[in-house]
Design a protein around this nucleic acid. Sequence first.
DNA 1: ACCCGTAACCTAATCGATTAGGTTCGAGGA
DNA 2: TCCTCGAACCTAATCGATTAGGTTACGGGT
Lengths: 328, 328
Amino acid sequence: MPVTLADVARAAGVSTATASVALNGKAGVSDEVRRRIREIAERMDYRPSSVGRALRRARTGMVGLYMPNTASTFGYYTETTRGVAEALHRHDLSLVILPSSHETGSTEGFPDVDGYILIEPHAHDRGVPAILHQALPVVSGDTPPRGAGSPWGLVESPNDASTRAVFDRFRARGARRPGLILIERISTWSLDLERSYRTWCGEQGLQPRVALTSARSSNSKLLSDLAEWFDPDGGTDAVLAGGDGIAVRIAGLLRSLGHVVGDSVLLASGVDSPLMEFHTPRITAVDLQPRHFGTVCADLLVELIGTERPAEPVRRLVSAPLIARESG
Amino acid sequence: MPVTLADVARAAGVSTATASVALNGKAGVSDEVRRRIREIAERMDYRPSSVGRALRRARTGMVGLYMPNTASTFGYYTETTRGVAEALHRHDLSLVILPSSHETGSTEGFPDVDGYILIEPHAHDRGVPAILHQALPVVSGDTPPRGAGSPWGLVESPNDASTRAVFDRFRARGARRPGLILIERISTWSLDLERSYRTWCGEQGLQPRVALTSARSSNSKLLSDLAEWFDPDGGTDAVLAGGDGIAVRIAGLLRSLGHVVGDSVLLASGVDSPLMEFHTPRITAVDLQPRHFGTVCADLLVELIGTERPAEPVRRLVSAPLIARESG
DNA sequence: ACCCGTAACCTAATCGATTAGGTTCGAGGA
DNA sequence: TCCTCGAACCTAATCGATTAGGTTACGGGT
């Protein structure tokens, strides 16, 4: 049985009102009494019930995090989640992980939260519009798909700049037929990459080379699919691999095709990870700074909770530096 | 302003008591009235407040997840988290991510939960004993470190069997000087691996070869540290790489030492990941089934919530099959 | 006609914290 | 002496859902 405010008040011989005021540092209690109540609360190891408080304040102190339910090769989501959780904790808020409502498109059974954070909202995920249509603050990391609704806050990465930085670098290192490999076209991020790349190709007078593959197709399948793409004569000679885990796969595949990564073919990853730094050779990558990204989302949401819904989403930008390494 | 039970009751012309009983399917209301109340609640889009309910029931409906705060290369934690969240959702519970209290060792500021799940409790993490000493149900995935306290439930992987399976396989494939590489000695899992390996060596009459490296040391550092270890004459000729992301690094390193992974040196990873399947060559690995592991932890905790603390931790075993691939 | 049991509702208390709105008491001013 | 004012407390309502414990009213039995 946890200690309640009433227990503390009784022990101190005051009313719960006085105890509450004393513990919350509000005016209306003598210093003497406040000191005594605090001491007693400390001794009794009193912890205010977040439930009682939530009921009275009409705030639960919880924020819901909604992320895609896809298999994750790397730690991107873990890092983002930790960034969010830590930032929220600094504001005395807690983070709840929402189950996917990809198919149902219903927020039934979701716990009561004060706001939502959407990470990488996918097209076709019916949970995304369901969340956006509630009358609660929502911060979205990445622009939600068209028609899903508009968030209160929007945290973005400069995908266009990052993509150009990669391909400009490929160009500077002598690539003549750079290409892009994606594993999905349902995240805004993937779509951004493709659009930026195609625009860049137009500006450079190059023919775009885009390959769409599956994150789950076998090595031999991938090899046969891409062998021609990477043909030594006239094939792709530099590639940005967008999406979770695909860059390392491509590196291995290129090796088995007889290429030397970072020399005969350049390679970069759209998502950095410790493995990019520690792979042999080290892989050039865009650092999306997931932990920091998470904290920015959380901090923005905290600002928006308790305010009116802004006419336009409040925007924040998180830089995504290109980490240049040997591979590309 | 969300719709409350009182709103529904008023609209239906009944008391909140009747409305509550009707909506919760308890006896004491006529079918006619129940139907009408349900219909009205539906039309008004009534959602019971989890806060009000929690206050009355003395249950928050939330479970706290505590995991190490280390950088994560792979998706292990993400998968575990999802497994937990999904399983809890099936029981109408929600998952809150707890901030690390590694240094403070205090649960202050933690939200009110009905129980805890500890994943990979590390030695030296002061948050672990702090959680275990609360009077709440705790399920631990992996045995907590000595002296940290005892959980109510314990979910284990057959680390000894998995480790032996790896080394038996190495042996069968002709390895004569198998070794073990770890990146930490603070998880029970790492310690299990080392112990099993040393015992196995004793049984086989082999000299143990254990290397401890850092997950963060540079490639060149790692290369110089391990060059001798992997010396073609008399060096390690098969290695189990325990820990997040290290197997892929070792594979690259072995290549740059002139080895052929899966031939001149065998390699296996203690943790499977999609990347192990898709690496070139494919890497033999122990599949810890993180998603399933998470659901087992969650289901066990649900069983324990509301019961008395058992005299001994309730144990569950989650199999960890060896996925044999080309590398080892 | 009268009593009893029970289905179907309702009233009010409860969970824990917060807060609007009193009440008390003593100091200071006229 | 009497009045005013404010500091320091207290009482009680409130948030939303649940539930123990009434209160009707009606049907069946004698």
